[in-house]
C-alpha cells in the first residue's frame, strides 16, 4: 500500500526550472553573438556536448538512470554558465576540460545533482583560471573595435587551432577586460578618467560587454517574475556591490571606478541572477540569502580592488559556498508559535 499523501502536486519539475534558466540566458547570448561574433556559440555547443557525454558516462558508472538525470537540465546550466564565463576565443580544449572538471569535481564527486557543496560552474572556472591564467585573461575585443574584420569562420578556426596563431594575431583581437585594464593601469599611477578613455570602455561598463549584461539582466528579471529565483540574492548582491563601489568612488573617483561600472562590467549581472542563485550551493533561508548576497558582493569588490585577480566572482562564490550550511543554520526563520 502506498500511503503517500498528499496525493496531489503542483510544481514545475526540476527539468522545467532548469530549462527556464537556460531560456533566460538566451537574450544575453544573442547580444553576445551580436557584439562578439559566433565564438561563444561554439563554446556553448562544445560545453553542452561534453556535459551530456561525460554525465552519461559517470551516471552509467554510478549505475544511476541516465535519462532523468540528463533531462533534469542542471548539467546544461552548468555548461552554459561556464561557456559564458570563459573568453570566447579560448582554445577548444579549455571549455572541454573545464566542463569535465565542473561535472566531475564540481558535481559528481559530491554525489551529483543536489549534493554539491560548490557551484559546479565556478569550480570549473576557478580551476581553469588558476591553471591557465594566460589563456583565461585573453578576452576578445568586440568585433566592431577590431582593426581587421573577422569572419565567423575565423573565430571557429581560432578556437580550434589557436596554437597555430602567432602572438601578434591573438594580441590584435584580444585585450584585457575593462576591469583588468583598470587594475593594471592603476598600478602605473594613471588616473581613472584617462584610463577609461581607452576604446574598450563603453557607456556603462565595457564596450559590448554592457550590452551582454543588459541581456542577462532581462533574463534575470524573467526568472524573478516567473518565481524561478527569489529576489533576495540578486537584490542583496547588486545593491551591496553598488553601494560599496559608491562609497569608495565618492572618496576617490580617480582610483575607484563608478558603482554603475562595477555593476555593469565583469560578471556581476550573470553572477547576481544566474550564479549565486544556484539553489543547491546557496543558503535556503530568506535572511541567509541576503547575507550570502551581501558577503559575496563585498568579497567581489575586495578581490577586484585589492586581490591578485581582476575579477573575483568565482572565488567569492566558492568561498561563500563553504559557509552556506552555516549561514542556513544561523538564520533559521522564526517558526510559527515560537519566540
Amino acid at each position: 500500500m502506498d500511503n503517500r499523501s498528499p496525493y496531489i502536486v503542483d510544481a514545475p519539475s526540476v527539468s522545467v526550472i532548469m530549462f527556464k534558466v537556460l531560456l533566460a540566458l538566451i537574450p544575453g547570448i544573442a547580444l553576445y553573438v551580436y557584439a562578439f561574433g559566433l565564438g561563444v556559440i561554439v563554446n556553448i555547443t562544445l560545453a553542452s556536448l561534453t556535459v551530456v557525454l561525460t554525465e552519461s558516462a559517470i551516471l552509467a558508472i554510478r549505475k544511476l538512470p541516465i535519462k532523468p538525470f540528463i533531462l533534469d537540465g542542471s548539467g546544461l546550466v552548468t555548461a552554459w554558465l561556464l561557456a559564458l564565463s570563459i573568453p570566447s576565443i579560448a582554445p577548444w580544449w579549455i571549455i572541454v576540460l573545464g566542463t569535465l572538471l565542473c561535472i566531475i569535481f564540481g558535481k559528481h564527486v559530491y554525489g551529483g545533482l543536489g549534493y554539491n557543496l560548490f557551484n559546479p560552474a565556478m569550480v570549473g572556472y576557478a580551476i581553469l583560471l588558476i591553471s591557465f591564467p594566460s589563456i583565461m585573461t585573453h578576452w576578445q575585443i568586440p568585433t566592431n573595435l577590431m582593426e581587421n574584420h573577422v569572419e565567423w569562420l575565423d573565430q571557429i578556426k581560432i578556437i580550434m587551432n589557436s596554437h597555430l596563431l602567432s602572438k601578434e594575431t591573438i594580441d590584435a583581437m584580444s585585450s584585457a577586460t575593462p576591469l583588468d585594464y583598470i587594475k593594471t593601469q592603476l598600478t602605473l599611477n594613471q588616473p581613472l578618467n584617462i584610463i577609461q578613455q581607452n576604446k574598450i570602455f563603453g557607456f556603462l561598463g565595457g564596450s559590448g560587454l554592457e550590452l551582454v549584461n543588459l541581456g542577462y539582466l532581462a533574463g534575470g528579471l524573467y526568472l524573478l517574475k516567473d518565481k524561478i529565483i527569489s529576489w533576495h540574492l540578486p537584490v542583496s548582491f547588486l545593491t551591496t556591490l553598488f553601494f560599496t563601489a559608491l562609497i569608495f568612488n565618492s572618496f576617490s573617483p580617480d582610483t575607484f571606478a563608478s558603482p554603475l561600472f562595477h555593476v555593469m562590467s565583469g560578471g556581476s549581472i550573470l553572477c547576481a541572477f544566474f550564479i549565486i542563485t544556484d539553489p543547491v550551493s546557496a543558503p535556503t533561508t530568506p535572511k541567509g540569502k541576503i547575507y550570502f548576497g551581501v558577503a559575496i558582493a563585498l568579497l567581489v569588490f575586495i578581490i577586484r580592488i585589492f586581490g591578485g585577480y581582476p575579477e573575483g566572482i568565482a572565488f567569492a562564490v566558492l568561498f561563500m559556498n563553504i559557509f552556506a550550511p552555516l549561514i542556513d543554520s544561523l538564520t533559521q526563520p522564526r517558526i510559527f508559535g515560537h519566540k
Binding site: H138, D171, S174, A176, T184, T187
Partner: peptide
Amino acid sequence: KKDGGDFDYVSGATI
C-alpha cells in the same frame, strides 16, 4: 615591445 621597446614579453602579462 608592446610599448615600443626592445624586450619580448608573454602576451597578457606585461606588468
